[in-house]
């Protein structure tokens, strides 16, 4: 096992991704925009429209946040964590899917895989390099986006309510889940890479993982599930087991022919 070769694979994939504005700009700019705009909108609703939108879901909010005082800070705390949090949890899935699809299915589409697999690289070195190339940016970008949205939220909350709302335990657990969400998306790309013809197909299949995550805010708003720290801890455990299974079967089924 030569980690230098895995590193070379990773560096090459990253330099491919980050040499194309069409790939990296939407991946960075869109989440950053939302990381700034969504807390501002939340703040606006909490401060100026609490009797309208906020009051409809404030019952759920007080139940989850654990206070009976109905008002701006409660709504903002609720919305910032239990609605925006899951929205930003799609970030590691989305980013990892885009890069992994480009990395695995892209080799097939560009037909560069033949030259790559003709070198003395092992399947393990190849997989580690390619998975790292998708995993690291996904986690780093997710941390950055959570940091931006957390900072904006805290800044606005402190100005208006003289209180910092983040972090709380559920929010921290959401961040802690991002590596496992990324791994799940990457594992799915590895699994499907033998069966897809190109980048878009692989991306679409792995992006399906976003759906259950996007359902979370609604389950919370409609009171179906309480997004408590216990809930997130259980989901994280489930994700770890699922990741291990997906990656195990992904690696086991991966053959050179998968990307040829």
């Amino acid at each position: 096992m030569d980690f230098k070769k895995s590193y070379a694979i990773m560096a090459n994939d990253l330099s491919e991704v980050f040499s194309s504005k069409a790939i990296y700009m939407p991946m960075i700019a869109v989440p950053t925009f939302f990381a700034i705009m969504l807390p501002i909108l939340t703040f606006y609703v909490s401060t100026y429209n609490i009797s309208g939108i906020a009051s409809r879901i404030i019952g759920t909010a007080t139940a989850v946040v654990g206070t009976s005082s109905i008002g701006g800070p409660v709504f903002m705390a609720y919305f910032s964590v239990y609605v925006l949090g899951p929205i930003f949890m799609t970030m590691p899935i989305f980013t990892a899917s885009v890069i992994a699809a480009d990395s695995f299915a892209g080799e097939k589409e560009r037909k560069t895989s033949e030259a790559l697999l003709s070198t003395p690289i092992t399947i393990q070195e190849l997989l580690i390099g390619k998975m790292a190339a998708s995993f690291l940016p996904a986690v780093v970008l997710t941390l950055a986006v959570f940091a931006i949205y957390g900072s904006v939220t805290n800044y606005l909350a402190y100005k208006a309510f003289n209180a910092y709302l983040l972090p709380n335990l559920s929010w921290i657990l959401m961040i802690a889940m991002s590596p496992f969400l990324s791994l799940a998306a990457i594992g799915i790309v590895v699994l499907v890479s033998a069966h897809v013809q190109g980048i878009k197909e692989a991306q679409q299949i792995s992006s399906l993982l976003i759906l259950p995550v996007l359902v979370l805010p609604f389950t919370s708003i409609f009171g179906v599930v309480d997004l408590t720290p216990t809930f997130f801890a259980v989901v994280m455990l489930f994700l770890i087991v699922a990741d291990l299974a997906i990656i195990y079967f992904g690696i086991k089924s991966f053959k050179k022919e998968s990307i040829l």
Partner: peptide, 21 residues
């Protein structure tokens, strides 16, 4: 098919493969 990584320069392409060798 002699495909190369189109977004990278010739030198970067060759350096990459050189490292794998």
């Amino acid at each position: 098919n002699y495909a190369l990584y189109d977004k990278l320069s010739v030198l970067k392409n060759l350096m990459f493969f050189g490292r794998l060798y």
